[in-house]
């Protein structure tokens, strides 16, 4: 009985994740996007912790803690600082208008559920039903990366994708081995700092973080 109760909370958090993914897709301002990203991290961390508690997989606590530390505290803080220092908090210009993006997003969700069906049937975890949501979040983050022009939004899209992949790992297999999760977290952290340096380089050279300036290298 207790297990079904926990499961419902996990399902609720999964639904929240999907909702946040859609909210990110429709968000126009970078600061709000960072906030949403932090919330996504929080939902992910909470659901991981609940799965850890209800199934007794202790290494998942580490994973939840790591997510909380990196994706709810360190990275959003870093991004807020970056946005302030680089002064880029204007409207994000999307390449497609928002309603069209949302419609494509809905189609992607349906596609993701179909794709996840055979795998989740094979899975033995109690959380298998959320695998479809995880895949949908991956695809939505991907869509966000494609349709946005600012460098910072692309990176947030990339990190959202990484969040969703972690969620997929938790729902299909109760998380990857700890050493791998630590390694992935380290890579992501280093990656974000490398990008921080990189943003300043881009701005110094182009006076903007808009990627339209960066379309010179093409096959002629």
């Amino acid at each position: 009985m207790a297990l079904t109760y926990h499961l419902q909370v996990v399902n609720l958090l999964a639904a929240l994740l999907l909702l946040i993914s859609f909210a990110m897709l429709s968000q126009r301002r970078i600061v709000n996007l960072v906030t949403l990203f932090a919330w996504q991290g929080a939902a992910l961390s909470a659901s991981t912790a609940i799965v850890a508690w209800s199934t007794g997989q202790h290494h998942l606590y580490w994973s939840a803690g790591l997510t909380l530390l990196l994706k709810v505290i360190v990275m959003p803080w870093f991004f807020y600082r970056l946005v302030r220092q680089l002064d880029v908090n204007r409207d994000v210009e999307a390449m497609l208008n928002i309603p069209t993006t949302m419609l494509i997003g809905i189609a992607l969700v349906i596609f993701a559920f179909n794709l996840a069906l055979p795998i989740s049937q094979m899975s033995g975890t109690v959380t298998r039903s959320t695998l479809g949501i995880a895949m949908a979040c991956v695809l939505l983050a991907f869509l966000m990366m494609i349709t946005r022009r600012k460098a910072i939004t692309q990176v947030i899209g990339f990190l959202a994708m990484e969040n969703s992949l972690f969620f997929a790992a938790t729902s299909a297999t109760y998380g990857m081995p700890l050493v791998v999760e630590m390694g992935v977290a380290l890579d992501v952290l280093v990656g974000v700092f490398v990008l921080g340096i990189f943003f300043f380089q881009i701005r110094e050279t182009f006076d903007s973080l808009d990627l339209r300036h960066m379309e010179k290298l093409k096959e002629r």
């Binding site: 991956v138 990366m145 990339f158 992949l165 790992a169 299909a172 990857m176 182009f206 960066m214």
Partner: peptide, 23 residues
């Protein structure tokens, strides 16, 4: 800078696919 950005983003997305494959 453009080349490095492309390298990072394309390889980043690519390697995210590989992470899913590993999962």
């Amino acid at each position: 800078l453009e080349a490095a950005w492309k390298y990072f983003i394309l390889c980043g997305v690519g390697i995210a696919q590989a992470l899913f494959g590993t999962i």
